[in-house]
Amino acid sequence: MRDTLYIPLRPWPTLGVVAALALLPLAAATLGQPFYVVFATRVLIYALIATSLNLLIGYGGMVSFGHAAFVGAGAYAVAMLMPAGVASAWLLWPAALLAGAGFAFLVGAVSLRTRGVYFIMITLAFAQMAYYLVLSLRVLGSDDGLTLSNRPSLGLVDLNRDTTFYYAALAILLAALAGMRVLLNAPLGRALQGIRDNETRMEAIGFATYRLKLLVFVIAGAAAGLGGGLLVSLNGLVGPNLLNWTQSGLLMIMVILGGAGRLLGGALGAVLLLVVEEAIAEHTIHWPLVIGVVLLAVVLFAPQGLSGLMRRRA
């Protein structure tokens, strides 16, 4: 029996990639480039955030142009709670997750009543409202943002060590990807992809499409919020720019580059974009131009993104 929607687990390639990622801090230490561990951690966190957006765009057909708002909700939740005395990552990161989920519920409940271009515009509008709100609130640091004196604590391990933080982020990303695979292979995932392809017909065969979309929107918002909480924990600072529409656009570019509707699309896109940025930014300030050309090439010649290309060769 053919199963077109099932996402198989390829054990050997998966194990290979995970092993390589696990060895990365050792390699960086050997090469005497510890800075790359922090950079790689940032990539992992963006991979988590872009993956959550891929769930919306690639699998749910919900082209959200306001995903940065949920990242911001999670980041500011952590940045507010830490100075108030909450130091444990076991509390802070779930709080970031809940902040993202809660805000996504509010935005989704309204936005998901619309479709197509209207949905894109209304999610953008909500995100920009959040951006200007943060910008104008003194308690959130206005345009200076907020800084943290310390990284959260995670029980026995010390997140102030970059390598430890890297492994924590890696574990979270892998758990999120595994969870997403389970979700997509479950009946809910099939329903989601049915809604993406033909929402009206899905209603006509009995699916409560609005409720299903809202559920997935909240899940994606939660993951984005967690990503925001991780970012501020890593960097020790957060500014309103994290919520700006350019951030939402950057996340969308990651999804398109990596492959919308592919399990690893968001993660691959995040790696590609951030590595290219890192590699070119020191040579030219015109690096966005390079990204633009790459994006154009992907849309024209590899509409399923990087993961689509890899699949074709496999």
């Binding site: 053919r2 049915g194 009995g206």
Partner: peptide, 23 residues
Amino acid sequence: SVFPNITVLENLALAVQGASGRD
């Protein structure tokens, strides 16, 4: 108005799921 990108059986399984909640 069917789902062109999945198989014929998967189309019907989706309709079964829609009404009964089970795949």
